[in-house]
């Protein structure tokens, strides 16, 4: 369906198109079963940064406050990118591995399923 408008061909401006972010892409990151963080978070990231830098810098800033964060075995994390299983290469850049503007990265940490049996 399309919007019904007074004038034919009405189209709102794309407010969040990629070129508006000064070279960064927006990446959303969520940690399954850890509702201590109420929702996934949004980060403006340089698409040329290696995935390893996300693990080293971005994730601790966004999720490091959780007691289970320090226990994560990064080799065992199950990742998905845009809802497809994803095996990251720590050395390669985000762009090289298919990260695009407004993509969704989810991580599952088997064995670390949140606290108190309540997915906290």
């Amino acid at each position: 369906m399309a919007v019904k408008a007074l004038q034919e061909g009405y189209h709102g401006e794309f407010k969040d198109s990629a070129e508006k972010f000064g070279g960064a892409i927006v990446v959303y990151i969520g940690w399954d079963k850890h509702l201590w963080f109420c929702s996934p978070k949004a980060f403006p990231l340089d698409p040329n940064m290696p995935f390893g830098a996300v693990v080293e810098n971005v994730l601790p800033a966004g999720f490091g406050a959780h007691p289970q964060f320090a226990e994560i075995d990064w080799d065992k994390v199950e990742w998905s990118l845009n809802q497809q299983p994803f095996t990251p290469d720590m050395e390669k850049s985000l762009a090289e591995q298919g990260f695009d503007h407004k993509c969704l990265l989810r991580m599952k940490t088997p064995g670390l399923d949140g606290l108190h049996g309540a997915s906290i």
């Binding site: 369906m1 919007v3 709102g12 401006e13 794309f14 407010k15 969040d16 960064a24 927006v26 949004a42």
Partner: peptide, 21 residues
């Protein structure tokens, strides 16, 4: 959204607006 994407692409999302400076 899918019914009227022409309208909702225009949403002023505060988080993205912060990122855009």
């Amino acid at each position: 959204f899918e019914d009227e994407p022409e309208k909702y692409v225009h949403a002023w999302l505060p988080v993205h607006q912060i990122f855009q400076g």
